[in-house]
């Protein structure tokens, strides 16, 4: 965790520009035909299983194989390289930018990931809180649990074998939990986000401000 966090600056940065700019580049060489235009809204995959494809952005033809390229996020098309329409392009060529408006949840998530220290999954397995931690969470809530390096915080369950997972990282309290007990978590995915106790009021304040100020 950074010692000095200028939350005002972070907030004003998001307020001034509440977008994520996703650069769309060609996956390989080929003749490009745009299927969208500047400032046109596009949507990413949707549906319960993300099975409904996103908006068609352009088609790339290589060796008579016309490949449709679709948007992976919601947003608006910007900086469309209209000059490339109908031209042969190389792989990795920037063709447009999708301006994706950040939602309140995304902003909070980004800020938290920036300021909390993340404890990542050492292996692809199912994770549970250690029994005493779980009972304390049940009793007092997760924010009351402070942990330090070497504490047995989690239990990793792999093929019905339980292995204790010792915490390595900055001491602090468990601020965010990113896993569901019993569900498989991939390796290197965040399990818990830790925040030093003295920084907690500041983080809570900033979350409250984002929640209240953002539409």
């Amino acid at each position: 965790m950074h010692d000095e966090i200028d939350f005002d600056q972070i907030l004003s940065q998001y307020r001034a520009d509440p977008y994520e700019y996703i650069e769309v580049t060609t996956p390989h060489a080929g003749r490009l035909v745009f299927k969208t235009s500047e400032e046109k809204p596009v949507s990413g995959p949707s549906g319960e299983w993300q099975h409904l494809p996103g908006t068609l952005l352009y088609e790339l033809e290589r060796e008579r194989n016309v490949k449709p390229v679709r948007s992976v996020v919601n947003g608006v098309v910007a900086n469309l390289e209209r000059a490339l329409d109908g031209q042969f392009v190389e792989a990795g060529e920037k063709v447009m930018i999708i301006r994706h408006p950040l939602k309140k949840r995304e902003i909070i998530d980004r800020i938290l990931r920036n300021v909390l220290s993340m404890f990542l999954a050492p292996e692809r397995a199912k994770y549970f809180f250690a029994l005493d931690i779980q009972s304390r969470i049940d009793k007092h809530g997760q924010r009351s649990i402070s942990i330090k390096p070497g504490d047995e915080v989690l239990t990793m369950s792999l093929m019905k074998r339980d292995t204790p997972v010792l915490y390595q990282g900055e001491p602090g309290i468990i601020h965010s939990v990113y896993f569901t007990p019993g569900a498989t978590v991939d390796q290197d995915q965040p399990l818990i986000g830790i925040c030093p106790e003295d920084k907690l009021p500041l983080i809570q304040k900033i979350i409250a401000r984002v929640k209240s100020e953002w539409e």
Partner: peptide, 20 residues
Amino acid sequence: NEDRTVTCPNAASRGCKDLW
């Protein structure tokens, strides 16, 4: 008999290359 390539439907998830 066609001289072209096709894309595997699993290309995005499995990284399959275009097939001649």
